[in-house]
Amino acid sequence: MNATTIGWAGLVGSFALVAIAIALSFWQRLHLTRSIVWASARAAVQLLLVGIALRLVLDSKASVWWAWLWVIVMIGFAGFTIRGRAKEVPGIFVLGTLSMATVVVVSLSVIFGFHVFPVEGRTIVPLAGMMIGNSMTACVLVGRRIVGELSDKRDEVEARLALGLSWQDASRPYVRSALRTALVPQIESTKAVGLVFLPGAMTGLVLAGVDAVDAVTVQLAIMYLVLGSVATSVTVIGLGLTRRVFTPDHRLRLIVRASH
């Protein structure tokens, strides 16, 4: 493999594109110059710090436990991020964190159990990161959607409960609709891959000099992993959240929707 590195000079060169964005902002009086500079600088600092830390974690001599510790921290941050994006969803921090942990355990067990990738720091961290990153968005979507459906359709849900249905049966049509909403974009993006866009991991591998077919197989494994992870995470949120908004004696609790 011919490893591709762009070096510091290359990085500075790529900054020319940011200069173009700044020039466009001036020309069109978008008043975004400060935001563009701040976003670019912040991304550089954040990624460089992550890169330095990752170098330590991914070092072939480093203990694999550092990688697992990194994953645990990622799960915690994901929980906070989900809570920040879906404040109106009751108990979302615990559910979101639990969902991310479940995704990591299930998906990595499959991937490493079937020896798809070796158990090393350089595989654990990026794979977990991709699963968590993709699942997080779906979790926020499904959590907000369930709360929205059950509060908008409260009359219908209570009419079903009043007929003697259990909370599971009374909520099923609405939870199913929310789960579909969260999963369909992932399925669509899986279908469109290669035709409409080249996914990130594959692009990165090709840029790094890996053979295109090898890059495709890695990408496929990752896409399947992500699809499974998103399905797992939204199911955990869906079941957990629905249980939480009903009482054990089959009554719907008051859900307050956030105003937008």
Binding site: D155, E156, E158, A159, R160, A162, L163, G164, P173, H250
Partner: peptide, 20 residues
């Protein structure tokens, strides 16, 4: 059991609530 009770004591709401 609320599920059994609700089948014995039915409820009709103020506005008709047809399901899809």
């Amino acid at each position: 059991d609320p599920r059994v009770l609700r089948r014995n004591v039915g409820m009709v709401f103020q506005k008709p609530i047809p399901f899809a």
